[in-house]
Amino acid sequence: MLTKRIVVCLDVRDGKTTKGVKFEHNVDIGDPVEMAEAYYEQGADELVFYDITASAERRGIMIDIVRRVAERIFVPFSVGGGIAKVDDMRAVLLAGAEKVSVNSQAVRNPRIIEEGAAQFGSQAVVLGMDALRDPSMPSGYRVVVDGGRVRTELDALAWAKRAESLGAGEIVLNSIDADGTREGYDIELTRMISTELAVPVVASGGAGRLDHIERVLTEGRADAALVASMVHLGSFTIPEIKGYLRDRGVAVRLDY
């Protein structure tokens, strides 16, 4: 039986792992390579790195981090943030990441999904989508970009379906309303996207307690749950999260 994945997310700025609320007030919390290795040993099923470094010339720092992470951890990881061209995708994949995630740039240029999937396969191309609750949209959610600061005219469900048809192999779905609140994932949003799409959905934004993770993986129908603050700030360990899920009948990988 395919198990539900616990995915640890590391936001990286200027070569350091950072944590903010609603993409603001960031503080450095450690070295991404060391943290990745620690989470690997704790049994994280997958890791996600988002490069939130603003300037283009720092891109090399991220590639170096990807290369060092790939030498030390033997579970899959993806890299996102500022991926605008197929060449950016190639650089990240050749440095050792399994998957590359596109978000705002894919909204501006959906062809990057198609080109990426044609070159590297759908399994390598992840759509990151930030959704904001908005009753005026057909699905009830609007796509926002640039870390939630800029609204688009796209409906979240319609965009997710389009990205899937263009070749995205997975969706990391982040609720802007829930992000950073630690009050739980947006179950309704996750369930809608996961039920309507054929590709796996990774739920993101809002994890604070163990039952939040359980709910999004069961009621929310997510294939994987993304955690950040919950584990970075020392409140919970990966084994605690997985033990809790196992005790409630959620299939997770325990033999690491």
């Binding site: 039986m1 198990t3 399994q123 294939d223 994987a224 990988r253």
Partner: peptide, 10 residues
């Protein structure tokens, strides 16, 4: 069942 199968299986 999602296609592709992505993740850990026995």
């Amino acid at each position: 069942l999602k296609i592709p199968q992505i993740g850990w299986n026995q």
